[in-house]
């Protein structure tokens, strides 16, 4: 089912629900049962962002003063932003992060599609074990994996290049995406492929004309996940890259905006804020697909 139809469905289901049940609920009950807990959640979740936002625009004297209201900015300033953009390599970090995330996500997705399809549908002997092995590979924490990977990166002469990150990120992205896509492919009825086979499609045509179009929600959620994971990645980016202009956002912000024990809070927060905007934007754009990808099933 495509997203629009699904949206209509859930919308009608919801409205049917709310009209069907609403007569049971008084307004007061609604406030206590729904809006109050929801408000609490929202507050806990959004407060850090709010803090990040106001800190980014607070002048230093206000930031460090003990007087006044800490939850508000009296005289907003762009000084931190200016410092971030012009006195650090922030634009380069941003570019590096985009480049590394996009390419590694793209390659990982492509590899995962083939891997997941082969494991799920080609039924070669040992497919199950391979699937399991891929999952186990995902369970090895990066904090252990970065040691052997560092040696590989060194020997390949890739240390301190963007390529080091582009090649190492797939080590955790591919297992993750493969697992997500395997689940998704499993939900596509077998008969569709058999029918296509009889209709004269080759394996490749079945993949591109039947399976992938039906797996779009799955691909999008895998893509978002992979993108977010590589956007926020820290350990590899910290160890495999040392030049300032090659750093990624998360590493750049914390290594270059903390000098000894001096925290440039304003710029730090501004950097974090701008760094989280693209991810938030992508999430909000695809959230519909994303949800259906997670619960994912193809219905005829």
């Amino acid at each position: 089912m495509s997203s629009d139809a699904k949206a209509v469905n859930t919308a009608t289901a919801e409205s049917a629900d709310s009209t069907g049940m609403s007569f049971l609920e008084t307004n007061r009950r609604k406030i206590f049962a729904t809006y109050l807990p929801l408000g609490g959640f929202l507050f806990v979740l959004l407060f850090p962002f709010y803090w990040m936002g106001i800190t980014a625009f607070k002048p230093n004297n206000e930031l460090l003063s003990r007087e006044g209201n800490p939850f508000w900015v009296n005289s907003p300033t762009l000084a931190h932003v200016k410092k971030l953009l012009f006195d650090t390599a922030y634009p380069e970090w941003m570019w590096n992060t985009v480049l590394v995330s996009v390419t590694s996500t793209f390659f990982s997705l492509a590899a995962s599609v083939f891997a997941a399809y082969a494991i799920e549908r080609l039924r070669f002997s040992g497919a199950k074990q391979v699937g399991l092995a891929i999952f186990l590979a995902y369970l090895v924490p990066p904090s252990i994996l970065f040691i052997p990977l560092a040696s590989v990166v060194f020997q390949l002469g890739l240390f301190d290049t963007r390529l080091a990150l582009i090649l190492t990120y797939p080590t955790f992205l591919i297992p993750f995406c493969t697992w997500l896509l395997m689940g998704y492919f499993r939900s596509i009825p077998f008969e569709l492929e058999e029918c296509a086979l009889i209709d004269g499609a080759s394996r490749w045509q079945i993949l591109t004309k039947i399976v992938l179009p039906l797996a779009v929600p799955g691909l999008i959620s895998a893509g978002i996940f992979a993108f977010t994971l590589s956007w926020n990645e820290f350990i590899y980016a910290l160890t495999f890259v040392s030049s300032s202009e090659l750093k990624t956002l998360p590493v750049g912000v914390v290594t270059e905006l903390v000098e000894g024990d001096v925290y440039h809070w304003g710029s730090l927060m501004a950097g974090a804020l701008f760094g989280s905007l693209p991810v938030a934007f992508i999430y909000s754009f695809f959230v519909e697909y994303y949800v259906s990808g997670m619960t994912g099933s193809v219905k005829e």
């Binding site: 089912m1 009889i198 179009p213 039906l214 193809v298 005829e300």
Partner: peptide, 20 residues
Amino acid sequence: LPPKERDIAMVFQNYALYPH
């Protein structure tokens, strides 16, 4: 022979129409 070279057509129980 693979299915496509057998010159047959099959109707499945759950129709197997391509949903997209």
